[in-house]
């Protein structure tokens, strides 16, 4: 099956980013294709490489970046990003800024769109 993920909350502040990540990994493990993770609302903060958590904690942006390296599109909404100062300069590797039209294409394309947030 094709899965899409919509993540609507920022990292660390809320568990949503962790649940979304663990769900994506489990879906891939079960042989599904996770086409994309679309970041919306404060979710766009997941894609900033400027985050610098303590060494013994998970690095949420790097986790998404690794998933991006495995072929999952990590997409931050442009309108939500512009509001919050997320630009191409601060994007973690393997992620990109895109429009809500892309989310619509994802919603049309996938078998399941699963939303995580607050």
């Amino acid at each position: 099956m094709k899965f899409g993920i919509l993540l609507k909350e920022g990292p660390y502040n809320h568990q949503a980013a962790d649940t979304a990540y663990l769900f994506a990994k489990a879906a891939i493990q079960r042989g599904h294709q996770v086409t994309s993770v679309f970041l919306y609302n404060d979710g766009v903060y997941n894609a900033t490489k400027l985050m610098d958590p303590p060494q013994d904690d998970r690095h949420i942006a790097n986790r998404w970046s690794e998933l991006g390296g495995e072929g999952v599109a990590i997409l931050a909404c442009i309108a939500a990003s512009k509001r919050r100062g997320i630009t191409d300069e601060v994007l973690v590797e393997n992620s990109e800024i895109t429009g809500l039209g892309q989310l619509t294409d994802i919603a049309i394309d996938v078998d399941r769109l699963v939303t995580f947030g607050d």
Binding site: A80, L103, T104
Partner: peptide
């Protein structure tokens, strides 16, 4: 508010 922005974009895709 951002939800409504999403709805308006999706509405232009004939869904």
């Amino acid at each position: 508010y951002e939800g409504l922005e999403m709805v308006l974009i999706m509405a232009s895709y004939d869904q």
